[in-house]
Design a binder for these strands. Sequence first.
DNA 1: TCCAAAAATAGGAATAATTCGCAAAAATTC
DNA 2: GAATTTTTGCGAATTATTCCTATTTTTGGA
Lengths: 146, 146
Amino acid sequence: MLPVVTPINERARPRRRNRTRQRQRLLEILRSTDCHPTAASLYEAVRVDSPRLSLGTVYRNLDVLASDGEIEAVPCTDGAVRYDGNVEPHHHFICDRCDEIEDLELSLPRGLAARLRREHGLTPCRVRIDFSGLCRECTDLLPNPT
Amino acid sequence: MLPVVTPINERARPRRRNRTRQRQRLLEILRSTDCHPTAASLYEAVRVDSPRLSLGTVYRNLDVLASDGEIEAVPCTDGAVRYDGNVEPHHHFICDRCDEIEDLELSLPRGLAARLRREHGLTPCRVRIDFSGLCRECTDLLPNPT
DNA sequence: TCCAAAAATAGGAATAATTCGCAAAAATTC
DNA sequence: GAATTTTTGCGAATTATTCCTATTTTTGGA
Ligand SMILES: [Mn+2]
Ligand SMILES: [Mn+2]
Ligand SMILES: [Zn+2]
Ligand SMILES: [Zn+2]
């Protein structure tokens, strides 16, 4: 049974949020790259300096950061979840071959949200456009571009 | 190590493809609804008539149907994978509260694919636009539309 | 600076979704 | 209908993620 009203992305929060080295490091890494790492690769990255880090903490903190709007979870076509330190509205190109995710600065389809509300009774709060196909590198690998 | 060229969605196929009751039933169900069921719910649905069906067979056949282009896998924001019997190009509205998926017949952003190729060197073969927010039903449940 | 309360952690167990391996069954071709 | 190939059911294995809990860390106030 679904709750009558579930404010989006809002789980029961603790009164305050402590500053922990683990959480800060994750955010730092995510902000310093334009890659879209997985939980596992973030785990590896942080463990170089802090080998005591546990994987559960990574998942917990990624959830926390995401519900605080500090990062964004990007569910990929192959079922994997990747994380994005760039919370500015933008879209993605996901390569079908190497699964790399590339940020796209593209203007949103104009007026689509308004049309959705007017014509469909839908209240969109986010639009995610994923283009998939072959990235530049993978395109170049193809022997015979038919 | 990635293979140099991986034709998209093409795995090693058997020489021929047999017609099996299990596979046909799955396709039948997916074509007869505009819902986007999960593997588990398809399993339940088929098992009403064929209790011997195994879950592995469901997953195997969904993969087969998807690589044959008969159905489409829809990875959702919550990490779940849903399946779509409608392979005509269309987009989705995914409700943040009830996770229902609604088909959207919306014209594609014009010229975006061409721009991607020209300006970014990307070769898109598919564009997926997921709108998320609240569906009509869930919008109506909100007590105070602020 | 020390304390008490709350929040977060490590580590491990538990879950859930999906995949794999294989002998038996079903489908197809001849 | 026999031979060949595909597919199935079943259970085990894998993977990603979540849950549990005792311990540690953080924090705001005395
Ligand atoms: Mn991004
Ligand atoms: Mn659909
Ligand atoms: Zn690529
Ligand atoms: Zn809804």
